[in-house]
């Protein structure tokens, strides 16, 4: 059982502007906990979380050494994350930026664990554009007509980012069409996807899909 980090410094005002840890976050955490041994086996050394939801480092603390990077387009989310690090005596590496853009090609094939809990809620296309531009809370859920608008952008970057043994964990909603995501990743980018956990939480049916390079199938 992973201890929950101390979030007592965050106020309801913060939660008006940043995403509060919820069922999707904990489902991802559970999936990673189950995979912890595998992640050690591949000597995972660089972990990148896109869109800060989890900040895994807060949960795992120094249980094994890796560089944990996180990016978020919402400046307030970055500040709250750093504060949370401080509250829990951990130095976090937080970058205020869009998806993986801040790293250019420097992280090419260098990411061992990639985490994305995207804005997956189906909304109007207008809502997703406004949310991304304003860099506010709405950016953490508004996902366009099939909830895949932002996810699709990242899916196109996974191949270039992941190390040969690297793993990509994606949170998805049933409405995002999980079989289609898995198909796309296989046909377009050569990744094998597998639903490692799923759970119903209120109206949401949530999935954690884990992707590995097709040639590395045997390691999972």
């Amino acid at each position: 059982m992973i201890p929950t980090p101390d979030l007592s410094h965050l106020t309801s005002q913060d939660y008006d502007q940043v995403y509060e840890p919820a069922e999707d976050t904990f489902l991802l955490l559970d999936a990673l906990e189950e995979d912890a041994k595998n992640l050690r086996d591949i000597n995972a050394c660089v972990c990148l979380e896109v869109g800060i939801r989890l900040c895994l480092e807060l949960y795992w603390k120094n249980s094994w050494p890796f560089l944990y990077l996180c990016t978020d387009i919402n400046p307030h989310a970055c500040k709250c994350t750093v504060l949370t690090g401080k509250q829990n005596h951990i130095d976090l590496n937080v970058v205020n930026g869009s998806l993986v853009a801040p790293f250019g090609t420097r992280l090419a094939n260098n990411v061992d664990v990639l985490l994305f809990n995207p804005p997956y809620v189906p909304t109007s296309e207008e809502e997703v554009s406004d949310a991304q531009l304003s860099r506010e809370l709405g950016g953490s859920w508004a996902g366009g007509s099939d909830g895949m608008r932002i996810t699709n952008v990242l899916l196109g970057r996974v191949e270039g980012l992941l190390s040969p043994e690297g793993r990509f964990y994606l949170v998805a909603l049933k409405q995002n069409n999980v079989p289609q995501i898995v198909d796309t990743m296989r046909q377009k980018y050569g990744f094998l996807g597998e639903v490692v956990l799923q759970r119903r939480a209120g109206r949401e049916h949530l999935f954690i899909i884990r992707f590995v390079r097709e040639s590395k199938n045997s390691s999972s």
């Binding site: 990016t71 387009i73 400046p75 970055c78 500040k79 750093v82 937080v94 970058v95 205020n96 930026g97 869009s98 853009a101 801040p102 860099r135």
Partner: peptide, 8 residues
Amino acid sequence: NGIPNMLL
């Protein structure tokens, strides 16, 4: 405040 702002 210690956070690099890489937004464009």
